[in-house]
Computed example of a mutant assay.
Amino acid sequence: MAITLGDNRYGKAEVRLVRVVRDGPRHDLRDLTVSVALAGDLAAAHRGDNSGVLPTDTQKNTVYAFAKRYGVDEPEAFGLLLARHFVDTQPGIHWARVDLVEHPWSRLGPHSFSRDGGPTRQASVTVTGEASHVVSGLAGLVLLNTTDSEFHGYVRDGYTTLPETTDRVLATEVAARWRWASIGDGPPWGASFQGVRDALVAAFVDTYSYSLQQTLYAMGSRALEQREELAEIRLTLPNKHHFLVDLAPFGLGNDNEVYVATDRPYGLIEGTVSRDDAPPAPEAW
């Protein structure tokens, strides 16, 4: 019987990095979680030969050393530096991916900050010997409309109990990932993140919704219309259900005023919105 090693990778996960820039009395702060994954000629390692293995502790140290040497401006740019370093300096490594999550802080003063409850900024950088790919994103963007949302006309069968509604609360926690049409030499990483976030929020606010699927498509379309550097965007929208509470036992009516918010189970709506002329995507993004 033949036994073959399949796809494999290894790396250092969730390296916590805080970089402070002390340029005079006003300080700047970047707070990241960085994960590294490497793949290549690693079959020998699975047979006990570590001669081609760059220790994951070394990968962690590289993250910290690069933060000092090059600074941490934009997550995408920092990820590209790291991924290209691992592929360029390790003969047996032909593929590197660096995933980054930036934890937001709000400025309170020249050197004072508070942890922001807003969405996290994310990036995933993949480098091979032939190409570099960057996917940017966000997670934890919580949005809610108290009206202008309906849901009816859906399939009904013997197990359907959900009542139709022409006025409901629509709430979700947006996770989005967008692929760049081209990364060139100096993409507008930060401006694009803010622009996509603003477009997603505006589309959610402006859309009279007949389903969360419709809202997803409107949000993805708005992002592509306003940010020409995007090739496509993937959205994950959980339906954060708000159900009307039955107040009749207490002799009270409930004209869409009192709800119970439930966290599970929940509907999960996912979709990709693309440009017709978008360049081909890498195998996995």
Results as ranks from 00 to 15, higher is better:
G40H: 09
I183P: 00
R177C: 05
R121G: 05
R107H: 04
A223Q: 09
A261S: 13
I269N: 06
D88I: 11
A83L: 09
Y70M: 06
A39K: 02
H133M: 01
G24M: 10
R179M: 08
V245A: 12
D23M: 02
G186T: 11
A176N: 07
Q59M: 14
L17E: 05
G92K: 07
H85A: 12
D255R: 09
I269L: 11
S51Y: 01
A181M: 02
K60V: 12
W180H: 06
N61Q: 14
V260G: 09
E14I: 01
A171V: 03
A67I: 11
F250N: 01
D73N: 08
G153C: 08
V169S: 05
D31K: 01
F204A: 05
V196P: 02
H241T: 07
V101R: 15
G92C: 02
R156V: 15
D7E: 10
S211H: 06
Q194M: 03
R97K: 09
F193K: 00
G79F: 03
P163K: 03
R121N: 02
W95F: 08
E102L: 06
D255S: 08
T56A: 14
V245K: 00
A284N: 04
V258I: 15
V273P: 09
L100Y: 01
P188D: 15
R107W: 02
A218K: 08
L29A: 08
L143K: 06
E130R: 13
T4S: 11
W189M: 04
V98F: 01
G220V: 10
L268N: 11
L224C: 10
H152K: 09
R84F: 02
L82W: 00
G140C: 06
L212C: 04
P163E: 10
G186H: 13
S114K: 07
T120G: 01
F250D: 06
V196C: 05
A218F: 00
A284R: 13
K60D: 05
T161Q: 10
D255K: 03
T89M: 06
T236D: 15
G267T: 04
E270A: 14
P188T: 12
A231F: 04
D246V: 13
G137L: 06
S274H: 09
G118S: 06
K60R: 15
N145T: 09
G184D: 15
V21M: 01
E232Q: 11
G129R: 15
V21D: 13
A45M: 13
T128I: 11
L32T: 05
E283M: 04
G109W: 11
A176M: 09
V196S: 03
